[in-house]
């Protein structure tokens, strides 16, 4: 779908040049849900705008299928953009048009006749489950409803790919879940490739197939969600997988052991077995489990004992049970 080769974007500012994106090489495959995760200011939004050339890369190539977008004419680029839908954190609906006419906009500019456009828009309103709001104006809708309209609008021209720029960051957790489920349905039923930019690991966990971890304009690692979740290699990846860290809640201040549950065992028996086996008193610093794609994923943080022998006993036990774990030193994070 997309190949990025050595893509860099440098912004000139009054304090000198800022590299928002540096030497990024990335492949986004047909039909996958690809996540780009990082903390704010990592350059994720700039990178996703390089995909449809809302930001023109200062360097490198962006291939969309066989077409090099950086060399495409204005007309070719506009046509390519009709195959690249995009939704935004702030929805960006036309405030003076009702829901139906918002969805008709991309069809209108593509020269589709009014009647056909309206029929297509109504079909899409059924897809996003908003048929009862056909003639409402954006100001009359909730955040989740606005994002549904934005999704319908982005799908109007039958795009091959949908770019989502922090599409759920302005929504509450329940609405986020519903929107992500809708995106997943669209991916499965319509075969639309989806690229999701987010700072929340749980968004990635819920729907992504593969994920790129970004920091300071650099893609630090790329892998399946399971790989990154169980064994993050980059510093940013390590921080992002700690529960709550991605939501801005401070991580524990002491050294801790991070135990990852990958669906093979639930965490309660493991903990009680660990206590019985080692005879240690364990202090839980945090825990979270979640049902991801039908498998129970989760993690638990337990305080690392100060003596080496106890620590080794815990590590040995987890290793024997084949449960991934890592010791996280606070100096490191």
């Amino acid at each position: 779908m997309f190949y990025l080769e050595n893509v860099s974007k440098i912004f000139p500012t009054t304090d000198g040049k800022v590299s928002a994106v540096q030497q990024v090489n990335l492949e986004i495959r047909d039909g996958e849900i690809f996540g780009i995760i990082g903390f704010s200011g990592a350059g994720k939004s700039t990178l996703v705008r390089c995909l449809n050339l809302l930001e023109r890369p200062t360097e490198g190539r962006v291939l969309f299928g066989d077409l090099d977008l950086t060399k495409a004419s204005d007309k070719e680029l506009r046509e390519a953009r009709r195959s690249i839908g995009m939704i935004f954190q702030q929805f960006n609906l036309l405030s003076q048009r009702n829901v139906l006419d918002n969805i008709c906009y991309p069809l209108e500019i593509a020269g589709v006749d009014k009647k056909a456009a309206r029929e297509r828009a109504k079909e899409l309103l059924d897809v996003v489950d908003l048929a009862d709001k056909t003639y409402a104006y954006p100001s009359q809708l909730s955040g989740g409803q606005k994002q549904r309209v934005a999704i319908a609008r982005a799908l109007a021209t039958n795009p091959k790919v949908l770019l989502c720029d922090e599409a759920t960051s302005a929504l509450d957790p329940l609405t986020t879940r519903n929107i992500l489920t809708l995106l997943q349905d669209i991916n499965k039923k319509m075969g639309v490739t989806i690229v999701i930019i987010t700072h929340e690991m749980r968004v990635v966990e819920q729907i992504c197939d593969r994920v790129a971890v970004m920091s300071s304009g650099v893609v630090e690692e790329v892998g399946t969600v399971q790989e990154i979740f169980e064994n993050p290699k980059s510093e940013t990846g390590k921080k992002l997988v700690i529960p709550d860290a991605s939501e801005g809640i401070p991580v524990p201040t002491k050294d801790f052991i991070r135990i990852v549950f990958d669906g093979r065992s639930s965490y309660e028996p493991v903990l009680s077995q660990l206590i019985l086996h080692t005879g240690l008193e364990l202090n839980i610093l945090g825990a979270r489990t979640e049902d991801i794609n039908g498998t129970a994923y989760g993690q638990m943080l337990i305080e690392a004992p100060s003596d080496r022998a106890s620590l080794q006993a815990i590590r040995d036990f987890l290793l024997a049970k084949d449960i991934p774990s890592e010791l996280v030193s606070m100096q490191e994070v």
Binding site: N52, L54, L77, R78, E79, A80, R81, R82, I84, M86, F88, Q90, N92, L93, L94, S95, Q96, R97, Y105, P106, E108, I109, A110, A150, R153, A154, T157, L163
Partner: peptide
């Protein structure tokens, strides 16, 4: 953001002026 969305949908500058900027 609305103008950016219009660009992302493949609008020409003239379409942005006539169908987005002035009506909005």
């Amino acid at each position: 953001g609305v103008i950016e969305a219009a660009k992302a949908m493949g609008s020409t500058n003239w379409q942005i002026i006539r169908k987005v900027l002035i009506p909005e």
